[in-house]
Amino acid sequence: MEKKIKVLAISGSLRQKSSNTALMNAIIALAPDSMTFTIYHGLGDLPHFNPDIDLDEGPVPVHELRTQLKEADAVLICTPEYGNGVPCVLKNALDWIVSSGEFVNKPTAVISASPTSMGGDKAHASLLLTLKMINAEIVEGER
């Protein structure tokens, strides 16, 4: 029997009626039974990235994020684009992971969705740059 794949799903938006969060939930509903999803709810609780406070296990919300990433086989990120870039809360979360390395070789799918005709392409490109820097394995589709 196939082992289930555990996916951590992260929406880059804190907005309650976010289209990207709605899309993330729709994707989870589409997924095969062999995939289980945990939705990460802590984006808004993370302190501003500051290496000075990253001692021992780091602040509690950071430790929780790192633990959830460690336990996941893969990551799904759905993000809007704010001001031609990645939402600051999402970038802040990734900054906390640069030194701890939970994204290294982690299969990661990135979706950017927007009401505009560009679909958040600049946030998408910027997010890929950061994820590649922290050695995430970017998945584009079936191989």
Binding site: P32, M35, A109, V139
Partner: peptide, 13 residues
């Protein structure tokens, strides 16, 4: 999106 999910699954396996 289905293709992306299958890609994620394959890569994880």
């Amino acid at each position: 999106l289905l293709s992306l999910l299958h890609g994620l699954k394959q890569a994880s396996y």
